[in-house]
């Protein structure tokens, strides 16, 4: 029981919530760039929260179903079609043997999530299927390969299809340009003027952005701090290298680094950032740890209510 990859697209990866507990040896976590979309995918199908899904970046990815099942589509609208009929994300669809599921190109957002009833069957490496191409770990082969033409994405048989959709209010707005930043312990290394510049300027997403980090172009931010002794890097950390152009470090980030940091984007904010394409413009907006906690609790309460 499987989907067969007909067209591999630009970048389609098997992901779960990430490979945790190995950052001390320098191994990154991987995981979904848009965690909210990923969690909804599994919630819609009553899957375990960590069930493997496919993260489709940009599109040009086509699958053929070899057996009946239920899928959920969340995240970006990549102009996805089921047998040539456009199907919008944030809901479930019944799949029949022979169906063609095709992700074309971005209509709204950049990364779509495909989940299947019970999750895709994939052998974990170090406790996770998350694909990290740079570290050659995870995915279908266990060696960090992106999906290729002819790959077989297995799922288990036997289900009862239920038509479900995510409540409208819970769907993230990928058109939101303000990205919340938790002011960390190092923001005082930047003068009030530099901070004001950072939080009031437009930043454009650079084409050199990837799953490791989003590079932004705009008003340079400066600090008198030359560098710091290398220290662990949390998800969402905003590094300010010498040229003053911020880098937001995301799922495939390196484990340690020595640049000063303005703060951390939240997982919800990082998910929205990851849905922006090169050339898109965003602004950063400061929040406290307290506000970030509330945002997270609200998010998790929505999943709890759903179940």
């Amino acid at each position: 029981m499987a989907f067969k990859v007909i067209k591999p697209g630009l970048l389609a990866l098997v992901q779960d919530l990430g490979r945790h507990g190995h950052m001390s040896i320098g191994l990154t976590t991987g995981g979904p760039m848009d965690e909210v979309a990923f969690r909804w995918g599994n919630a819609l199908l009553d899957n375990e929260p960590n069930s493997p899904q496919i993260e489709v970046t940009f599109g040009m990815f086509t699958l053929e179903a070899q057996a009946n099942t239920s899928i959920a589509l969340t995240g970006a609208d990549l102009g996805t079609t089921l047998n040539d009929k456009h199907i919008p994300p944030w809901q479930t669809y019944a799949i029949k043997k022979g169906d063609i599921l095709a992700f074309h190109q971005p209509v709204w957002g950049l990364r779509a999530y495909l989940s299947v009833k019970g999750g895709f069957l994939c052998e974990p490496t170090l406790g996770s299927v998350a694909t990290v191409m740079r570290e050659k770990i995870g995915g279908l082969t266990g060696k960090g390969d992106k999906l290729q033409k002819g790959d077989v994405l297995r799922y288990s048989l036997g289900h009862h299809h239920e038509r479900r959709s995510v409540p409208r209010l819970a769907i993230p707005n990928y058109g939101q340009t303000e990205i919340p930043v938790i002011l960390g312990y190092q923001y005082k290394a930047f003068s009030p003027l530099e901070r004001a510049n950072f939080f009031s300027s437009d930043y454009k997403v650079s084409p050199n952005s990837d799953r490791m980090g989003y590079r932004l172009e705009g008003k340079a931010v400066h600090t008198d701090l030359k560098g710091i002794i290398s220290e662990g890097i949390a998800y969402g950390a905003i590094q300010i290298p010498k040229d003053g152009q911020p880098i937001v470090l995301l799922r495939d980030r390196q484990s340690i680094g020595g640049y000063p940091k303005m703060g951390c984007v939240t997982r919800v904010g990082g998910g929205i950032l990851a849905q922006q394409k090169p050339g898109d413009v965003i602004q950063f907006t400061p929040i406290t740890v307290d506000q970030a906690e509330q945002e997270r609790h609200l998010q998790m309460a929505r999943f709890a209510q759903w179940r």
């Binding site: 945790h20 950052m23 001390s24 976590t29 002794i229 662990g232 998800y235």
Partner: peptide
């Protein structure tokens, strides 16, 4: 996750388990 380095230790925790 725990990320020890030269003079620091980054502690990553489950925020459904702990608040600040």
């Amino acid at each position: 996750d725990l990320v020890p380095s030269y003079t620091t230790l980054l502690v990553i925790f489950d925020d459904d388990h702990y608040d600040r």
